[in-house]
């Protein structure tokens, strides 16, 4: 049978989940056990939540589902090797501050609480010592930039699953190579 798209297992699960009406939890629970290169599974769960805040799911997938965590995990053992210590320190800092402020892990906060938390980070207004010298602002900037790179960059680096952002932007993908349109 010819399929217009290659249906990946994950995408199939998502569609199945959509039709069953049980969208999010189902696809998470049913997903394969991720083996991460750098992140611990606890860090990866936090990264998924952060990525969804940076690029929220709406009629198009959010950062988490699009593979932001996988992209960053992959790059942290390659071109982003130099950011490893920032990620280790920053992700722990987020959980610790979340426990201090809300007595809960970040991914368990409600949507608005998560947003306000990140807005404080973006503004450099976190109080805990781990965020001294503008580390809150700097780490937030890293997560934001890397999430955007994953979501809007080429899928060959582990993010932008199914070229989802290109479809959202109504871009032809892959580009049609070989077409000579020089006709004035």
């Amino acid at each position: 049978m010819d399929l217009p798209d290659k249906l990946s297992r994950r995408r199939f699960m998502r569609l199945a989940a959509l039709s069953a009406g049980g969208i999010y939890l189902f696809s998470r629970c049913a997903g394969p056990t991720a083996e991460w290169r750098f992140f611990t599974s606890s860090e990866a769960r936090l990264m998924d939540a952060l990525a969804d805040q940076i690029i929220p799911p709406d009629e198009w997938p959010g950062g988490g589902e699009s593979g932001v965590t996988n992209f960053i995990d992959k790059q942290l053992t390659g071109p982003f090797l130099r950011f490893q210590s920032e990620y280790r320190k920053g992700l722990k800092g987020i959980q610790d501050s979340s426990e201090t402020l809300y007595h809960q892990r970040f991914e368990n906060l409600n949507w608005k609480e998560q947003t306000s938390f990140l807005e404080l980070m973006e503004a450099g207004k976190m109080n805990e010592p781990v965020w001294a010298d503008g580390f809150d602002l700097k780490f937030f900037g890293l997560i934001r930039d890397h999430s955007m790179q994953s979501y809007y960059g080429s899928s060959r680096h582990g993010g932008n699953r199914d070229n989802i952002s290109y479809k959202m932007l109504k871009l032809d993908y892959p580009f049609i190579v070989g077409q000579n349109r020089y006709k004035s």
């Binding site: 805040q53 198009w60 973006e122 960059g153 290109y166």
Partner: peptide, 22 residues
């Protein structure tokens, strides 16, 4: 390019979140 464009916003416009994606 899509990633570059994610950094191009009028002054005051959000650089992440729902508004940014829209």
């Amino acid at each position: 390019m899509p990633y570059s464009f994610s950094g191009v916003r009028p002054p005051g416009e959000k650089l992440w979140g729902k508004e940014h994606k829209v």
